[in-house]
Design a protein around this nucleic acid. Structure first.
Lengths: 335, 335
DNA sequence: CTGATATATGAAAGCGCTTTCATCAAGTGA
DNA sequence: TCACTTGATGAAAGCGCTTTCATATATCAG
């Protein structure tokens, strides 16, 4: 194995000098530097990341924790973080929590043990009380789509309430009145907030939201499929459905087929996320576009800013807005 | 910071003993062990992963390199690797190559520098010649869906040729003769193999594959969309289309709408992958099911077996088969 | 030419852990 | 009882690097 010492011996200098060539080249005489650089190349020396981190106490890597890898939702955020950090010479490593509190906790300590300089995490299984102590680490931890009292500085999130409200308003503006909503699971702050905002839109207009039309379900295809069936069972008329994720909407549309119903002919559907598939479906899905990539970027940059203490990395934008992406699955009711 | 030394002092033992309690508890007297364990807990001590790895030269983690995070295809494999390793107390960390040769190379050295005990990688940008030297590391590197002369021991793959052949045969058996194919990009070994197998099926039956009906495109939604349009431009009649990925198929079906065509009424479509969305589309997508999760698991286990030298981790199955998942998008042509 | 300042380098201590080797006490069989 | 194994523990070296501090040489103003 080629180590610093190997190189230093070969070049006839001390290990300190070789180290300097790598980390602060300007502090080394040009001739020495070139000699060392040549030797490094010839020997194919690659610094041992672990030794380096151990000695310097910084690893130039940011850890990211997501719920699942096999989901575009998290994947897009992840890519956002990655691209933002790459520019500044930082690496991203990812772990998944497999949707369990234990997993979230383990991933966090694992990443901490790996000396990540900062951590970006999406957490919904851990309660506020469980989470708080974990946040005491000296490495900054950025929370995705989660609000924690007194920890706002380090939260990046979509304003899900506003998004829910906007979704309702859009449907309302299209003339719909009997609007159903299939929600994501309670466990997710996102779902709760979207529901709350949705309700508020009705209140503000002095309209009543028919509670029989809101069915609690789960994110993911299956959740949309089951949710739709449940809605049908209630036999309450509706002209539009708001699904709290695109995956749910896709599956819901399919479920409708089994009842001989089809969107948007029989009812309008509004999704959420704007996954890549949304624009390639039949009907093309009208959905609440969520800037997943930018959210990821912001989180990455905030992590960097917090870790380095250089605020210029981060532009201060912690809150993002979802916007209506109009396509074909929502139709206006003729007034 | 609580270190080994802190604990050892508090417990009144040597650091060696504390270390043993953690790594080989059976070698420590029960009473001492319990005392140390108690102290560890009280102090909230967590071993420093870096120091540990540096000293022991093993990190108990496997690195995985995928092309992109925001794709279910890789996500599912990743989850497969993860679940397989978790059981054995190994961690998985992932990096993405962002679909570039440079990215693949960087991810590899980064993971190597991180002392991953073994690496599982999906690589298609690096040429065989570029790849070979990288494989010389002492850490075993497992290749996903790639064949490398003389490196078969460490390759896990879907038999894409057989899959392509099977796809063609299925369509042929359904009575289709004018079959179009939209391929993935040449850069991917997967695409080439599927095409090859597809061709072979025709040859074996003494049938001719109309070359005007095969259009080279790219994986991903856009590739399917563009591919279909290109196919239309050629104005050659067909009764079925084989898309080399589900994403392509989804987008292709949508593109067809723009021509007033719809599947399966106007033509059958066969996809590839069986992504979760496939069963929730209209029409439900008939597709070549690829056991992504199992492939990931196998790769993880093989990595473990190679690293530890314990062959019992791995069951020897390196090659996987795709099977036809019949749903609604392919119809039989009345004979 | 002198003392002060800047620049380039090396020696050596440490980062937090594992592991080898030596030590010591306790147990064993003859 | 003695020589001998066995088991539990500690001292200390070392993993590959960074960084502080001291040293040595070069540079400069006066």
């Amino acid at each position: 194995m080629v180590t610093l010492a190997t190189v230093s011996r070969a070049a006839g200098v001390s290990t300190a000098t070789v180290s300097r060539v790598i980390n602060q080249p300007e502090k080394v005489d040009k001739r020495t530097r070139e000699l060392v650089e040549k030797t490094i190349k010839e020997l194919g020396y690659r610094p041992n990341h672990y030794a380096r981190t151990l000695a310097s106490k910084t690893s130039r890597t940011i850890g990211v924790i997501v719920n699942r890898f096999a989901s575009t939702y998290y994947g897009q955020m992840l890519e956002g973080v990655e691209t933002a950090l790459e520019v500044h010479g930082y690496k991203t490593i990812a772990e998944s929590s497999r949707e369990s509190a234990k997993g979230e906790q383990e991933a966090l300590t694992s990443l901490l043990d790996r000396q990540c300089d900062a951590i970006v995490m999406h957490t919904n299984q851990l309660t506020d009380a469980q989470l708080r102590p974990l946040l005491q680490e000296k490495q900054p931890i950025i929370l995705l789509n989660r609000h924690l009292e007194g920890y706002c500085q380090r939260c990046i999130y979509l304003d899900n309430e506003a998004a829910g409200e906007r979704a309702a308003n859009y449907l309302l503006d299209c003339g719909h009145r009997q609007i159903a909503m299939i929600t994501g699971s309670d466990e997710f702050h996102e779902a709760l907030a979207r529901t709350k905002g949705f309700r508020r839109a009705f209140e503000k207009r002095g309209l009543e939201l028919n509670e029989d039309l809101v069915v609690k379900s789960r994110f993911g295809f299956k959740g949309g499929y089951d949710g739709f069936k449940q809605l049908q069972k209630r036999a309450v008329p509706y002209t539009a459905i708001f699904f709290q994720s695109d995956e749910m909407a896709i599956a819901g549309i399919e479920a409708a087929q089994e009842y001989g119903l089809s969107a948007p002919a029989d009812f309008s559907v509004l999704g959420f996320d704007d996954v890549e598939a949304a624009q390639y479906l039949t009907p093309k899905l009208t959905t609440m576009r969520q800037p997943l990539n930018e959210i990821g970027k912001a989180a990455g940059l905030l992590a960097l800013a917090e870790f380095t203490g250089k605020q210029e990395f981060f532009d201060g934008k912690r809150e993002f807005e979802a916007t209506v992406k109009q396509r074909a699955s929502v139709t206006s009711l003729g007034s």
